[in-house]
C-alpha cells in the first residue's frame, strides 16, 4: 500500500473585502483529497476555479479560512518553515516573474545554500547534479541574467532549484502554460522521470495543476476536477476521462479536440 503523504480536509478559503460592509468571495470551498507518495495528481479546472489558491495554501503563502492540511500526518503550520520547505517545493506558472531581474541567476541558487541548506559543503557538485537532471549545463546557466535565457530554460532552472532540496513533494502550478510548445513535452517528461526517480533522486510526488486536459491525462494517475472553488469529481485518470459522472466534466471533455474523433459538421 502506498504511503499517504498529503491529506487535505475540508479546506476553505474566503476573501473578505471592505471594513464596514464586508463582501465575501469564496476561492476554495470545502476541498478534501489525499495524495500518496510516488504519484502525480492533476488538478484540472478553468481559470478562476481555485487551483492556484490550493497551491498557495499548500505552500503556506496564504492561511486557510477553515480546514486543515496535513503533511505526513502533521498539520503543516506546526512544522518549522525551514523543515517544511525542505520537503515541499513549488514551481510556478510564469517563469519570467519567478526570477529577480536585478540579479544573476546564481543569486537565486545561492539563496538556497545560504539560508536553507547550510550543511552542504560541495555546492558546485550539488548544483551540477541538479541541473544535469533537468538537462542543463552548469556553465550555460551560472553568471547569466534571467533575460538572457529562454522561458523553457528558466522553468528548468526553477525545477533544478527545487531539486536541490531533495523534496518529497512538488507543487507544479501550470508549469507549462507560458513556455514555448517545443519545451513543453520535455518538461512533462521530466516530471514523469522525477516521479519514477532517477539514479540521483528518489521518487517525488507531484501535484500538477493545469487547465489542459490533454496534459493531465498524459502525466497523471489520478485527477481532480475543480469548478468554482469546489472539487466536482475525482478518481483515476482513465475512469474520470472515460466515464465522467459530473455534467461539468462531460462538458469539459466535449470541448476538448480529440484526434480519434471526427468533427461532426452539420
Amino acid at each position: 500500500m502506498k504511503k499517504e503523504i498529503l491529506k487535505i480536509q475540508n479546506l476553505t478559503k474566503k476573501y473578505t473585502s471592505g471594513l464596514i460592509r464586508t463582501k465575501e468571495t469564496i476561492a476554495v470551498e470545502n476541498a478534501s483529497f489525499k495524495l500518496y507518495s510516488g504519484e502525480i495528481l492533476s488538478l484540472v479546472g478553468e481559470s478562476g476555479s481555485g487551483k492556484t489558491t490550493i497551491a498557495n495554501l499548500i505552500l503556506r503563502f496564504i492561511q486557510p479560512t477553515e480546514g486543515e492540511i496535513f503533511y505526513e500526518g502533521k498539520e503543516i503550520h506546526d512544522i518549522p518553515t525551514k523543515d517544511y520547505y525542505k520537503n515541499v517545493q513549488g514551481i510556478f506558472q510564469d517563469p519570467y516573474s519567478s526570477f529577480n531581474y536585478f540579479y544573476r541567476i546564481d543569486h537565486m541558487l545561492n539563496q538556497v545554500f545560504k539560508y536553507s541548506l547550510k550543511g552542504i559543503t560541495n555546492k558546485r557538485k550539488a548544483l551540477e547534479s541538479a541541473l544535469s537532471i533537468v538537462g542543463l549545463n552548469t556553465d550555460d546557466i551560472l553568471g547569466r541574467f534571467p533575460h538572457q535565457i529562454s522561458g523553457g530554460q528558466l522553468q528548468r532552472v526553477l525545477i533544478a532549484r527545487a531539486l536541490l532540496f531533495k523534496p518529497k513533494l512538488i507543487i507544479a502550478d501550470e508549469p507549462t502554460s507560458m513556455i514555448d510548445s517545443s519545451s513543453r513535452a520535455d518538461i512533462l517528461n521530466l516530471f514523469k522521470e522525477l516521479k519514477e526517480g532517477t539514479t540521483n533522486t528518489e521518487g517525488i510526488s507531484i501535484i500538477f495543476i493545469s487547465h489542459d486536459i490533454g496534459q493531465a491525462q498524459y502525466i497523471s494517475e489520478r485527477v481532480l476536477i475543480m469548478k468554482e472553488g469546489s472539487i466536482v469529481e475525482q478518481g483515476l485518470t482513465e475512469e474520470v476521462f472515460l466515464n465522467p459522472d459530473h455534467p461539468y466534466t462531460k462538458n469539459l471533455l466535449a470541448c476538448c479536440p480529440s484526434i480519434y474523433r471526427k468533427w461532426e459538421l452539420d
Binding site: 505552500l59 503563502f61 518553515t81 525551514k82 520547505y85 517545493q89 513549488g90 510556478f92 506558472q93 510564469d94 516573474s97 519567478s98 526570477f99 529577480n100 536585478f102 540579479y103 537565486m108 539563496q111 538556497v112 545560504k114 539560508y115 536553507s116 526553477l158 532549484r161
Partner: peptide
C-alpha cells in the same frame, strides 16, 4: 513569483523586502 521562491528558500520577510524587493 520570485518573492514566493525566496520564501521557499526560508528567507525571513524583512530580508525578502530588503534584498529582493528593494533593489
Amino acid at each position: 513569483n520570485f518573492i514566493k521562491v525566496s520564501k521557499m528558500s526560508a528567507l525571513k520577510d524583512m530580508r525578502v523586502a530588503f534584498t529582493e524587493v528593494l533593489p
